[in-house]
Each structure stands twice: as structure tokens, then as C-alpha cells.
């Protein structure tokens, strides 16, 4: 059963690569931000699954429970989730701003416009 012990990493890598593909291959800015979020979620899953111990309970102290999962990754990921939302907000604000100034949030359309006529 050794290979099954790494299954969580493979799920993480699959999600991470999906998000990565969205970021580099998609032209739409909202789609890129969604891809970035999927990438982030994969990192969250990596940390949380690293902190899990099979048979342990969640790290809230109780009498009669000896084995707890590792609380440290939970703390780090709590911080990371909130920071991730802040990043999303700034990214979307940028996209909205680009749309207001240039009329599109598609990468290729923006490039065409830049090549065609100078836009203020």
C-alpha cells in the first residue's frame, strides 16, 4: 500500500497543474484569477493533508484523547485563505479597471488594440 500513501500529493499536483494551465493559457482575466484560486486551494490541501494523522482527532483539547492532528498547518492555511481573498479582490479590481479603460478583459483583444491604434 505504499503507493497509496502518496495519493494526496497526486491530487494536489493535479489541481495545481489545472490552475497553472488556466493561468498561462487562458486569455480571460477573470478566468486567470479563478485559475489562481484553484492553484491556491491545491496548496491548502497539501498543507492540511500533511498535518493529518490517521486516527487522530482535530486539535481541540479534550480529556481522553491522546492523538491530535498537527495544528500548525491549520493556522498557516487560515492565514493563507484570507490573504488569498485579498489577492483575488485586488486582481478583480485590476480587471474591472482594465475593462473600463480598454473595453475588454481578453488578453488577445487587448494586444490587438495596442498594435492597432494608440489608446489613452
Amino acid at each position: 500500500m505504499d503507493w497509496l500513501g502518496h495519493f494526496n500529493y497526486w491530487v494536489v499536483i493535479f489541481l495545481m497543474m489545472t490552475g497553472f494551465y488556466a493561468v498561462i493559457a487562458r486569455g480571460n482575466m477573470v478566468k486567470i484569477i479563478i485559475g489562481l484560486n484553484i492553484f491556491q486551494t491545491s496548496v491548502f490541501i497539501l498543507f492540511i493533508s500533511a498535518g493529518k494523522i490517521i486516527g487522530a482527532s482535530s486539535p481541540v483539547l479534550e480529556k481522553g484523547v491522546d492523538l491530535y492532528s498537527n495544528p500548525l498547518p491549520h493556522v498557516l492555511i487560515l492565514t493563507a485563505i484570507v490573504v488569498g481573498v485579498a489577492t483575488t479582490a485586488v486582481g478583480l479590481a485590476l480587471a474591472v479597471r482594465v475593462r473600463e479603460n480598454y473595453g475588454s478583459i481578453q488578453d488577445d483583444q487587448l494586444t490587438e488594440e495596442e498594435d492597432g491604434e494608440p489608446n489613452t
Binding site: V30, I33, I34, N37, T41, F44, I48, S49, G51, K52, A56, S57, S58, P59, V60, Y68, S69, P73, H74, I77, L78, I81, V82, G84, V85, T88, A89, L92, A93, A95, V96, R99, E100
Partner: peptide
Amino acid sequence: LDAGDVALTEAAVGAGISTILMLVALSL
């Protein structure tokens, strides 16, 4: 995976606030 606090935060922030932010962006 035993991370109750993280699950709550992700449900509230990831599924809630992010969605609202994206919908606001899509309305524009």
C-alpha cells in the same frame, strides 16, 4: 482532514466572499 477551523473559513471566505467579489467583477 480534521481541520474544522480551516473548513469553516474556506466555506465562509472561499465559497462566500470570493464568489461575491467575482460576481461584482462580472457585473462590471
